[in-house]
Amino acid sequence: EEKWNSLVDEKKPGKISDDLRNALGLQEGQLPPWCLKIQQIGLPPSYPNFKIAGINWDIKNISDNIYGTNDILSSRKSKTG
């Protein structure tokens, strides 16, 4: 139960850990394989504010462990501010 809660806190869309990156065999600067599919069929229904590098976010934002952002707080902030 505790382990599950820490997973939910830690693992977020747009972020990939070294472990996942290694399992995927993902090269530096390369988008994860599901991004192409997202580009074809649209954003996830539960993440309407998802920003993905090279799709609806500057490709320069890509780094080792970040390819996108689904920061609901910051997108709310930018709407009200």
Binding site: L7, P45, S46
Partner: peptide, 22 residues
Amino acid sequence: IDPQVTLDILYELFVQVAPISS
């Protein structure tokens, strides 16, 4: 699924496209 894949990796992979209940 390759046997080296952990539960953490599965969670992390699929949460990229939808929130997971269990």
